[in-house]
């Protein structure tokens, strides 16, 4: 495989996977699972930022999406409810 094509292929895979995960996050009833899926989407987004040559956004997105947002959302769930009812 030509090595120049590889970053573009990774960009396509990452963006499609993040779209896939976004739909699942919206549909998920169990909020803990939804947060875990959101964490996975954050990892794909940060990889996208790195591949599209934005290293400063990459450096911001890693701690915010992996370190801070999950803890904030888990605290929010702990205070309210962990399940979404109809």
């Amino acid at each position: 495989m030509n090595i120049v094509v590889l970053p573009y292929l990774l960009v396509i895979i990452c963006s499609l996977t993040s779209t896939f995960l976004a739909y699942l996050i919206v549909k998920e009833r169990n909020l803990v699972v939804a947060i875990l899926l959101l964490l996975g989407q954050g990892i794909f987004h940060s990889l996208l930022y790195y591949l599209l040559m934005a290293p400063d956004l990459f450096i911001t997105y890693i701690p915010v999406s992996v370190g801070i947002t999950p803890l904030l959302l888990f605290l929010l769930i702990k205070k309210t409810e962990w399940r979404e009812y109809d």
């Binding site: 963006s15 499609l16 779209t19 739909y23 699942l24 549909k27 699972v33």
Partner: peptide, 18 residues
């Protein structure tokens, strides 16, 4: 997470690709 949801999400990402 039902199988239908996964299918819909997969087709959504294919739509984005197309």
């Amino acid at each position: 997470m039902i199988k239908r949801d996964v299918l819909v999400a997969f087709s959504l990402s294919l739509l984005v690709l197309s």
